[in-house]
Design a protein around this nucleic acid. Structure first.
Lengths: 149, 149
DNA sequence: ACAAGAATCTCGCTGAGCGAGATATTGCCA
DNA sequence: TGGCAATATCTCGCTCAGCGAGATTCTTGT
């Protein structure tokens, strides 16, 4: 049980959690007549709302790894469902600003709420110092994985 | 900074890591002329090899959430690339056993190797007790997320 | 034997996402 | 100021992953 083994086991755990969260997202998508990509788009848009960053098709498409045609299609679907609406930017009239509807925020919470509750429940089994350890570890993994080519 | 907040931050970290690992998988897929689904299939097949469980189209399709037609298509693609081959089960001749080729195992390692290294590197910044804490936490999350409807 | 059921495959179709190019707008620079 | 390259978004036509329905092959209980 050396540290190499622990790394291995943790990788497998992270992978298993990742796959399971993907499945949760897919089930959520199916239950709300959304595609997995639409869920990812919704999450991205809600992040933009949280951080106050302006959401545009260009930013969204870059985040999702779609080209402009695919991005237009995603936004069309979300707009048809009433989750976002397009508004021309008055400053730069080439750009379109994506306004997120209240229904999308509610939808987001119905997705994340239960997950947050479960993770809070698991966290509550640890004392403050261990919670901090977990957070530092996940931050480290996040940075490591984000800064890959 | 109460425990609710910590849970929230950890959920966001897990989500961010999940999304980033998805992107890693997608980049890996693109670089090897695979579809994201094919990568998931490959991982599932390698798991079967590791655990010694027999891999069949039925099991694979169930894991991937595909119907039988889609499953056949995935296996066709992997077989065309030489990563698996079909073999009739001699015991139950309705079944097909999926034999994983050496090239697929190598491919799997080229995917997981770097990830394992990075996680091991992050883990090495923690002492044994904290590593155990991380592992316990991830196990808890895994269980919680797995046992959802 | 034969019917019911199980595992896999075939066929035709829908639709997500791509490449290429059209359109509208801005900003740089002579 | 006028023209041109760059930027943001959208349209069109196509490919192919995955679906539903049903065909095929084999097993098992009676």
């Amino acid at each position: 049980m050396n540290e190499q083994d622990a790394g291995m086991r943790v990788v497998h755990l992270l992978r298993a959690i990742t796959m399971e969260l993907d499945r949760v997202g897919e089930r959520f998508a199916a239950r709300h007549a959304l595609h997995p990509t639409d869920v990812r788009a919704l999450i991205c848009l809600l992040d933009a709302v949280r951080t106050g960053a302006p959401a545009t098709p260009g930013v969204l498409g870059a985040h999702l790894g779609l080209n402009s045609a695919g991005t237009t299609a995603v936004i069309d679907r979300l707009e048809r469902l009433g989750h976002v609406r397009r508004e021309r930017d008055t400053r730069d009239r080439r750009r379109v600003l994506l306004k997120v509807d209240e229904s999308a925020v509610a939808l987001g919470w119905s997705f994340f709420g239960p997950l947050i509750n479960e993770v809070v429940a698991v966290m509550s089994r640890f004392d403050a110092a261990d919670q901090a350890t977990v957070e530092r570890f996940l931050s480290g993994v996040h940075e490591a994985v984000t800064s890959r080519e």
